[in-house]
Lab assay of single mutants.
Amino acid sequence: HSHMSHTQVIELERKFSHQKYLSAPERAHLAKNLKLTETQVKIWFQNRRYKTKRKQLSSEL
């Protein structure tokens, strides 16, 4: 499990705020920019979407 830097997370968050789903080319581009693997980016987005979904569910209770 590799640790992401604060800067990388900020960039991922910024991208996520604009779009929740990335196409393969977008993911490849973002990964390259942030010096991450595409898998890391993919998993981060999956986890981030899951967290957002959970938060929405709990706020509706």
Rank of each mutant, 00 (worst) to 15 (best):
H1C: 15
H1T: 10
S2W: 13
S2T: 12
H3N: 11
H3K: 13
M4L: 09
S5W: 05
S5T: 13
H6D: 09
H6V: 10
H6K: 13
T7P: 04
T7E: 13
T7K: 14
Q8Y: 03
Q8H: 03
Q8L: 04
V9I: 14
V9F: 07
V9M: 15
I10W: 07
I10R: 13
I10Y: 13
I10K: 11
I10H: 11
E11R: 05
L12C: 05
L12K: 01
L12I: 01
L12D: 01
E13A: 04
E13G: 02
R14P: 02
K15V: 15
K15L: 12
K15E: 06
K15M: 14
F16I: 02
F16K: 01
S17Q: 13
S17R: 14
S17T: 08
H18A: 08
Q19P: 03
Q19M: 07
K20Q: 12
K20P: 09
Y21N: 02
L22R: 00
L22N: 00
L22T: 01
S23D: 03
S23C: 06
S23E: 03
S23G: 04
A24P: 10
P25H: 14
E26L: 04
E26N: 03
E26P: 00
E26C: 08
R27Q: 07
R27G: 03
R27H: 02
A28I: 09
A28M: 07
A28C: 11
H29M: 13
H29V: 13
H29W: 12
K32M: 10
K32W: 06
N33M: 15
N33L: 15
N33R: 15
L34D: 01
L34I: 04
K35F: 11
K35D: 13
K35P: 01
K35V: 04
K35T: 05
L36C: 05
L36D: 00
L36S: 00
L36E: 00
T37E: 04
E38W: 04
E38P: 13
E38A: 10
E38F: 05
E38I: 07
E38Q: 06
E38G: 02
T39A: 12
T39S: 08
T39D: 10
T39C: 14
Q40R: 03
Q40F: 06
Q40G: 03
Q40Y: 05
V41E: 02
K42R: 15
K42H: 08
K42D: 08
K42N: 07
K42F: 09
K42M: 10
W44C: 02
F45S: 00
F45H: 00
Q46H: 08
N47C: 15
N47D: 06
R48Q: 11
R48N: 03
R49Y: 04
R49P: 00
K51V: 08
K51S: 09
T52M: 14
T52D: 15
K53D: 10
R54C: 15
Q56A: 08
Q56D: 10
Q56G: 11
L57I: 11
L57F: 08
S58Q: 12
S58M: 10
S58F: 10
S58E: 12
S59I: 09
S59H: 09
S59D: 14
E60V: 05
E60A: 07
L61G: 12
L61V: 14
L61H: 13
L61Q: 08
L61D: 14
